[in-house]
Simulated assay, not measured.
Amino acid sequence: MPLSEHEQRLLDQIERELYAEDPKFASTVRGARLRRPARRRRIQGIALFIVGVALLVVGVMVKALWVADFPLMSVVGFLAMFFGVVVAIMSGRHPGGAEATKGPAKPKSSFTQRMEERFRQRFEE
């Protein structure tokens, strides 16, 4: 749903004030893109998934690999598939997340205080 003209003007005003207040943060946010997983880790995850599929199929087909009428190799193959997907998807994420890189909190600026006050007024009315 598109913004109304009034909402678009408010958004433009907020953006201008954000650039004026903290240009480094504003440029970081504007240029931020989702991090892509590292190519090597993604390839490793895909390879582990393929090995898992092979183990799953071989474990079901070859009865000699069953342990007490249980396809143990197939279970190992499924786990390899699962961890391969996890490695491929999670390879670009940092363990500490955004909280690990945050520094001490800054005191609120007048712009931030005004925006919070406007937000509170909307819900009180």
Rank of each mutant, 00 (worst) to 15 (best):
residue 79 L to Q: 02
residue 77 G to I: 04
residue 66 W to H: 12
residue 109 S to C: 14
residue 69 D to A: 05
residue 86 V to C: 06
residue 74 S to K: 07
residue 118 R to A: 14
residue 33 R to I: 08
residue 91 S to D: 07
residue 97 G to H: 03
residue 1 M to N: 01
residue 97 G to Q: 08
residue 115 M to G: 03
residue 118 R to C: 00
residue 14 I to L: 11
residue 19 Y to H: 12
residue 51 V to R: 03
residue 18 L to N: 09
residue 73 M to E: 04
residue 94 H to S: 12
residue 109 S to G: 06
residue 13 Q to A: 10
residue 50 I to R: 04
residue 89 I to N: 15
residue 104 P to Q: 15
residue 49 F to T: 02
residue 117 E to I: 14
residue 111 F to T: 05
residue 93 R to H: 13
residue 77 G to D: 12
residue 27 S to V: 03
residue 124 E to W: 07
residue 116 E to N: 07
residue 8 Q to Y: 04
residue 92 G to K: 05
residue 37 P to Q: 09
residue 30 R to Y: 12
residue 91 S to A: 14
residue 17 E to N: 08
residue 60 V to W: 04
residue 3 L to T: 08
residue 30 R to S: 06
residue 71 P to N: 00
residue 40 R to W: 03
residue 17 E to R: 09
residue 64 A to W: 07
residue 65 L to D: 00
residue 58 V to S: 04
residue 75 V to R: 09
residue 63 K to W: 01
residue 62 V to F: 06
residue 68 A to E: 06
residue 41 R to W: 08
residue 103 G to K: 04
residue 21 E to C: 15
residue 15 E to K: 13
residue 48 L to R: 07
residue 83 F to C: 04
residue 59 G to K: 07
residue 57 V to H: 05
residue 74 S to M: 01
residue 101 T to L: 04
residue 50 I to L: 11
residue 114 R to C: 01
residue 101 T to V: 01
residue 54 A to P: 02
residue 112 T to E: 10
residue 94 H to N: 02
residue 124 E to F: 03
residue 14 I to S: 12
residue 88 A to P: 06
residue 107 P to H: 02
residue 119 F to C: 08
residue 41 R to D: 02
residue 25 F to V: 15
residue 29 V to Q: 03
residue 63 K to E: 09
residue 59 G to V: 02
residue 40 R to C: 00
residue 99 E to C: 06
residue 42 R to T: 13
residue 107 P to E: 05
residue 1 M to W: 05
residue 56 L to P: 01
residue 84 G to D: 05
residue 113 Q to E: 15
residue 105 A to Y: 00
residue 78 F to E: 02
residue 91 S to H: 13
residue 16 R to T: 11
residue 35 R to G: 10
residue 6 H to E: 13
residue 120 R to N: 15
residue 81 M to L: 15
residue 81 M to C: 09
residue 78 F to N: 03
residue 64 A to F: 06
residue 62 V to S: 10
residue 72 L to I: 08
residue 113 Q to D: 14
residue 47 A to C: 07
residue 85 V to S: 04
residue 3 L to C: 01
residue 16 R to W: 10
residue 16 R to A: 14
residue 44 Q to R: 05
residue 68 A to Q: 08
residue 33 R to C: 06
residue 22 D to I: 14
residue 4 S to T: 14
residue 62 V to K: 12
residue 46 I to K: 00
residue 53 V to G: 13
residue 10 L to D: 07
residue 84 G to R: 09
residue 50 I to Q: 01
residue 2 P to D: 12
residue 76 V to C: 02
residue 97 G to T: 05
residue 48 L to I: 05
residue 6 H to C: 00
residue 101 T to P: 03
residue 112 T to S: 13
residue 38 A to L: 13
residue 7 E to Q: 15
residue 60 V to G: 09
residue 73 M to G: 06
residue 64 A to I: 12
residue 121 Q to H: 15
residue 34 L to P: 11
residue 101 T to W: 07
residue 89 I to A: 09
residue 103 G to R: 13
residue 54 A to H: 01
residue 18 L to Q: 02
residue 90 M to C: 12
residue 109 S to I: 05
residue 31 G to P: 01
residue 30 R to T: 11
residue 105 A to W: 07
residue 20 A to L: 12
residue 105 A to E: 13
residue 16 R to Q: 12
residue 121 Q to M: 14
residue 32 A to V: 11
residue 2 P to T: 11
residue 57 V to E: 10
residue 75 V to W: 13
residue 111 F to S: 08
residue 65 L to P: 02
residue 76 V to L: 10
residue 89 I to L: 13
residue 82 F to V: 05
